[in-house]
């Protein structure tokens, strides 16, 4: 996916975040979000033990003991706090994080999430994915609409192993925004120049049209 498409997704996620929310950003596209928050302020939670993550420091201020969950050097905002991993995951698993913005391999038409393992490949990493899926108040998935080989990633039924029984609230791709409402997928907005018919061709999952789309 092009950098422009990744930025389109990041900017659209920002519209979903509310001033003052506590937000955890997964690896990949979500890490672009801080650059597009504009005037909106959210508290970024990093699961390795920080609430109030600030931007990347200049080279001379890098401290490898002040890093993000993606292991990148970061800074702390004024008002930030530090805590150990168990307190950090208590925050996540206890439902104190307002939104988690996560990458995903697949999502099915009911909102079931696969974001940790690919079938047939070695499954040796899960990180905090399952904790975030189980515990965040709202889950926003960011992903390319299709795989590199053109296969659908918004599918009827997951091919990849699921990350939990908890379902996503939204998925945002370079082409469209969908919400999951009562176990079904609704198209909220088209972000690219695709027609609805073209969108249906690259989306295996069945979706309906949200009232928000019809009003637009």
């Amino acid at each position: 996916m092009s950098q422009n498409n990744r930025i389109t997704i990041a900017k659209r996620v920002v519209q979903e975040l509310k001033e003052g929310q506590v937000v955890n950003l997964g690896v990949g596209i979500p890490t672009l979000i801080p650059d597009y928050l504009g005037d909106k302020h959210v508290f970024l939670q990093s699961e390795n033990g920080l609430l109030g993550m600030g931007p990347t420091p200049p080279e001379e201020d890098i401290n490898m003991d002040l890093i993000s969950a993606s292991k990148q050097p970061i800074t702390m905002e004024i008002g930030a706090s530090l805590f150990d991993s168990s307190a950090s995951f208590a925050m996540i698993r206890g439902g104190h994080v307002d939104a988690a913005v996560l990458g995903a391999l697949e999502v099915d038409e009911t909102g079931e999430i696969a974001n940790w393992a690919v079938p047939g490949q070695t499954i040796l990493g899960v990180g905090g994915a399952m904790d975030l899926v189980a515990g965040a108040k709202k889950i926003i998935l960011t992903m390319s609409h299709t795989a590199k080989n053109g296969n659908a990633k918004l599918v009827k039924k997951l091919n990849c192993p699921r990350s939990g029984v908890r379902k996503a609230d939204m998925v945002i791709t370079e082409h469209a925004v969908f919400k999951f409402v009562d176990g079904s997928m609704e198209l909220v907005e088209i972000l690219s120049d695709l027609t609805i018919e073209q969108l249906k061709e690259i989306t295996e999952a069945e979706f309906t049209y949200s009232p928000e789309l019809l009003e637009a």
Binding site: E47, S85, I92, V126, M130, G135, R162, G164
Partner: peptide
């Protein structure tokens, strides 16, 4: 899962035999 790891070690150190969590329910 990372949160389960952290909590399991916390419990181990606190004399708690185990805990129930929603993380990973329904997964491999």
């Amino acid at each position: 899962p990372q949160g389960t790891l952290a909590e399991a070690v916390r419990c181990g150190g606190a004399g708690i035999g185990g805990f129930y969590t929603k993380t990973a329910v329904g997964t491999k």
